[in-house]
Design a protein around this nucleic acid. Structure first.
Length: 280
DNA sequence: GATGCGTGGAT
DNA sequence: TATCCAAGCAT
């Protein structure tokens, strides 16, 4: 596993020696449901502008949302800004190092808390992202994990497999995650290239077809699409945007209104007297 | 536990 | 062209 990673792991910028926990946290949050290739340039620009948590906390949430650009799920930018404030005001500007403290930060869930503990602090922590889940489930069960959140059983198995020694566990986490991203992929896994092939239930008996358990949400005409269009207009403007301009992003005025309202509730848009803008 | 939440490249 | 999918989290 670890040898495979040394030979085939990607040379991602946050894997450079000396990357501090805050930079790791930023990269982990940006990577939620987002391809790594899209994260890299934003992460580099982000840390150039705000090298640490306090620098981000001292700027406005709206600037964080603007810098987030088209990464998607812009509420993550808001939560990352909230986390920066929490680190500045509650932890003396230093990212806390325990799983429990990390989990308490806004926008930080079980995956991110484990990833920062492991990759930011070198600690032994279960890192259960979709890649690790897929690798472990296929090796053990010969089937893909469910679409639902990880079960206690999955977590227990990951814990049981995780090497005891801290630095070894960090390397193991990185290797399994990378294996899931590059070899044990969701579609068309490259089993002949996999170091676990000999011990893998999936490789021994590949399932014939994919079973679709949950129906995916359609895209065209959804509130998500309309919200995205409104946010794109707000990011592009450094001042107020006329509400009528924002409401023109789709044909259905009621939907446009609903979406603008929901963005305001989320804190992604702020209404002023004569327009709308990103939060100050 | 099921839903909602962006975006764009790959197939 | 339509669907799948990518380092999840909050409600």
């Amino acid at each position: 596993m670890v040898a495979w990673f040394a030979a085939h792991g990607r040379d991602l910028p946050w894997r450079a020696p000396g990357t501090d926990p805050w930079a790791v946290l930023v990269c982990e949050v940006m990577s939620h449901q987002t391809p790594v290739a899209r994260v890299v340039p934003v992460w580099l620009r982000w840390l150039t502008r705000w090298p640490d948590a306090s620098a981000l906390a001292d700027d406005s949430p709206g600037e964080a949302v603007r810098m987030w650009g088209r990464l998607g799920y812009p509420r993550r930018a808001l939560r990352l800004h909230e986390t920066a404030v929490a680190v500045r005001d509650g932890h003396g500007g230093v990212v806390p190092g325990t799983y429990e403290e990390l989990l308490a930060l806004p926008g930080v869930g079980p995956y991110t808390a484990g990833a920062v503990a492991a990759f930011g602090f070198g600690r032994r922590a279960v890192v259960l992202d979709v890649n690790v889940r897929r690798v472990l489930a296929r090796v053990h069960d010969g089937a893909d994990p469910t679409a639902a959140a990880p079960t206690v059983g999955e977590r227990a198995r990951a814990e049981a497999l995780l090497p005891v020694e801290a630095s070894t566990s960090v390397a193991w986490n990185a290797a399994v995650m990378e294996l899931g991203a590059l070899v044990c992929t969701a579609r068309a896994p490259r089993c002949p290239e996999c170091p676990l092939q000999a011990d893998c239930a999936w490789a021994a008996d590949p399932p014939p077809a994919r079973s679709r358990t949950t129906r995916r949400q359609p895209w065209h005409g959804t509130d998500r699409q309309v919200r995205g269009r409104i946010m794109a207009l707000l990011r592009a403007s450094h001042g107020l945007v006329e509400e009528a301009t924002l409401l023109a992003v789709c044909d259905d005025p009621a939907q446009a209104r609903r979406c603008l309202d929901s963005l305001a509730v989320d804190g992604l848009a702020e209404r002023a007297d004569d327009g709308v803008r990103l939060p100050l």
